[in-house]
């Protein structure tokens, strides 16, 4: 259980300034997916983007990765403008992206090969992260023999082995069943604590957000914009490693109630 540095000491890693994204649907029809989002992500924090579907949270994450360009506004990483994807900003996707033609270890090694990491170091990093995600027994297996949770662990290991400075995760456990999701969240929190990594994670699962986040950025939809940023003050600067313990922490229920209330309001917007 690590303690976080106080906010004043923290260095901002990734900055969004008045970022908007408009999609051209037809000739005279546009969709404003993200409207005027300004946000700072600090070094060594877990920042969760939470919101109902259609709130533009995935678009925001894709812009952070450099896979999508903003229509207006500026994104910068380590004080440099983001102009495209880079290995310093790793990403895990909701869909299973472990390459089916590579074994588990070849998948984890993939990014290291792209970046011409020497073989000895490659092997060490692969071993380290395969053990970290508890896939040592399956290192020679192809993805088709793996369960959904294991495939996502491969994707996480592949990203981490590449030593990114920030990890962007787009609903990484969204396709998993409830029990697996819960295990994966605890595993992820362990790894985050151990590696001190900086994470931006997108989810629509309130309990996942509360469990993993140091800060929750709540987004509303039509257009996607920041509604509120919530600090997880009830955690008192530490990460709580189990869900049961989290439930018993004073202050948890209030913040959950508050988020549920916001979700309900967002839902009623649609019915109008």
């Amino acid at each position: 259980m690590s303690t976080r540095r106080s906010e004043a000491q923290r260095r901002s890693k990734l900055v969004l300034e008045h970022v908007s994204k408009e999609y051209q649907l037809k000739r005279n029809e546009t969709l404003l997916a993200v409207s005027d989002v300004s946000l700072e992500v600090f070094d060594n924090e877990v920042c969760v983007l939470l919101g109902p579907s259609g709130c533009g949270k995935t678009t925001v994450l894709h812009m952070m990765a450099g896979l999508v360009d903003p229509t207006t506004g500026l994104l910068s990483f380590n004080d440099k403008e983001i102009v495209g994807p880079s290995r310093e900003r790793g990403m895990v996707f909701q869909s299973y992206t472990s390459f089916p033609w590579l074994t588990v270890e070849e998948n984890v090694e993939y990014g290291l090969r792209l970046n011409k990491v020497p073989e000895k170091e490659r092997r060490e990093r692969v071993d380290f992260f395969i053990n970290k995600v508890k896939l040592a027994r399956f290192r020679k297996a192809y993805p088709k023999h793996l369960s959904g949770g294991m495939k996502q662990r491969v994707a996480i290991a592949r990203m981490l082995a590449n030593s990114p400075e920030i990890s962007l995760m787009d609903e990484p456990f969204g396709a998993l069943d409830a029990e697996t999701r819960w295990h994966m969240q605890e595993l992820l929190l362990d790894i985050i604590d151990e590696t001190q990594m900086t994470v931006v994670l997108v989810t629509h699962d309130i309990s996942e957000a509360l469990f993993l986040a140091d800060r929750i950025v709540f987004l509303s939809r039509h257009p996607g914009r920041i509604r509120e940023i919530l600090s997880m003050e009830f955690k008192a600067g530490r990460r709580i490693p189990s869900k049961e313990e989290l439930l018993e922490t004073p202050g948890y229920l209030e913040i959950e109630r508050k988020i549920l209330h916001m979700m309900r309001e967002e839902a009623s917007d649609v019915e109008q």
Partner: peptide, 13 residues
């Protein structure tokens, strides 16, 4: 799948 390509791009390819 577009995310195959996106994965490789975010890994630095």
């Amino acid at each position: 799948p577009a995310d195959f390509v996106n994965s490789a791009l975010t890994l630095g390819g």
